[in-house]
Amino acid sequence: MSLGYYDWLVKVIVLGDSGVGKTNILTQFCDSKFSQNYTATIGVDFKIKILNIQDKKIKLQIWDTAGQERFRNITQTYYKGAFGIIFVYSLIDRNSFNNVEGWIKSILESTTDEVCSILVGNKLDSQDRRVQTAEGEKLAQKYNMPFLETSALENKNIQDIFDRLGQNLKIRLENEGQKVSNNTQRQSGQFKLNQEANQTEQPTSSCNSC
């Protein structure tokens, strides 16, 4: 978690039912590994990764969340300021697909900000598919977001999730470039250590303006 140079700091949250592979997607993306030995996420957890999109570096502060319905209320408080959202369901769990629209709606209701989202159907490696590709595509179209089927286990399309999301983030951030750089008080192209921490809520402002 070193503080290298980056152009933007963006808060991203990962949402979806319990057991769909949210933590595994993040571990694969951030630490390049898949672990059968992982624990259920209680509350939230977070990881940091710098994403290179063309000539820009986007520092992602990615928040992993507990999937069980009853944690939704308390984690929702902390969604604010999120600029990117990854909605995940499992291709082998029909319920998780049925519920993912609920997750999408709950975000649309709780935030007036326009966020960059992506829909992900995970566990592409399994033979026991219960949700067809076309269904995922249709849902993604309905909410106007990109869609990918992935396997955290086989590291398939995992980087693509973040590249796709990153492309959209970059376009929006650049459109609002002037505001962002004013808001975040960048100094010599780099956040100052203390200020950076103060600015964890700063992406909110960039978000509002998108």
């Binding site: 209680i42 509350g43 939230v44 977070f46 308390i74 902390y78 921490a197 103060n198 964890t200 809520e201």
Partner: peptide, 17 residues
């Protein structure tokens, strides 16, 4: 408080488990 580190972020697991 200076860094907005809410107790939610790190004590939820303490209380729940």
């Amino acid at each position: 408080k200076r860094h907005n580190i809410d107790l939610f972020y790190f004590t939820t697991e303490w209380f729940i488990t």
